[in-house]
Amino acid sequence: MTTSSAAIDLRRPEVSAGSRSHTKRVAVPSLAAVVPWLIPVSLICIWQAGSSLGFVSTQFLPSPTDVIAAAYALTMTGELPTHIAVSFQRAASGFLLGGSLAFVFGLLNGLSRTSELLTDTTFQMIRNVPNLALIPLVILWFGVDEGAKLFLTSIGVFFPIYINTFHGVRTVDAQLIEMARSYGIGRLNLFLKVILPGALPSIFVGVRFALGIMWLTLIVAETIAAKSGIGYMAMNAREFMLIDVVVLSIVVYALFGKLADVTARALERRTLSWHPSYQKV
């Protein structure tokens, strides 16, 4: 009786505090939400002013409004959405394939010395080859097929996630493992309750790195060996001297990169809410 009412009393201030700060954020955007955008927005304004006043030749750099117009036109023809969808799909499948293999091997090698002995040296050797150096070989193998892009992005994504998962598992506090064992916690629960959560912050570091490499690899692969996608759109536009479309492609990549990072951060915040650096004060 007393405990349940106490529990409710405890919950109430949390809820009201949460909703209050939420409404406040919607009504008046806080300084922290505005500040990061000051520089990008000013740069765009300066850029637009420069173009409009004729300081910058539009042959050299199209104005922001030109880029927006190009985006509008290509959206109307359906080209832009198609290329975006294709690139997005490639990025996602490369990330899933490379990322899940990396996660599995990172865990295996982190948990088992035998597995580490068997595969780690091989991985470390492959890791030292820049994945873009494989492009000529990959084109010979796959032509400009989807296989080429999947292969390159998977490999690019693999290493940061592999290394950080491995490292995360290996650096889980040994005292916590001893503690759990002494309480009779079995292997499965030891993994689920101690090792995996302990390795998670490190795994996220790997994921954020991997996202960056994923875009880089994809851009290069699409500009060199593709018949669709944002990178192809940019290369194609270059041949026809459509500089507004070239700049548009770069902007799209930038937005994609930002989106991926924001998603990763949000996921991190959710799963690492126990971590002191993610706790609301």
Binding site: L176, S182, V194, L200, W274, H275
Partner: peptide, 30 residues
């Protein structure tokens, strides 16, 4: 010992990612 002895250390050795209640539940084993 596994069934009758429990140990407390100088460091609390709590799982930082588990709530206080879930940490206490660890004491009951799997």
């Amino acid at each position: 010992a596994a069934s009758v002895v429990r140990m407390m250390y100088q460091e609390p050795r709590l799982l930082p990612w588990a709530s206080v209640l879930d940490n206490v539940l660890i004491g009951l084993g799997d």
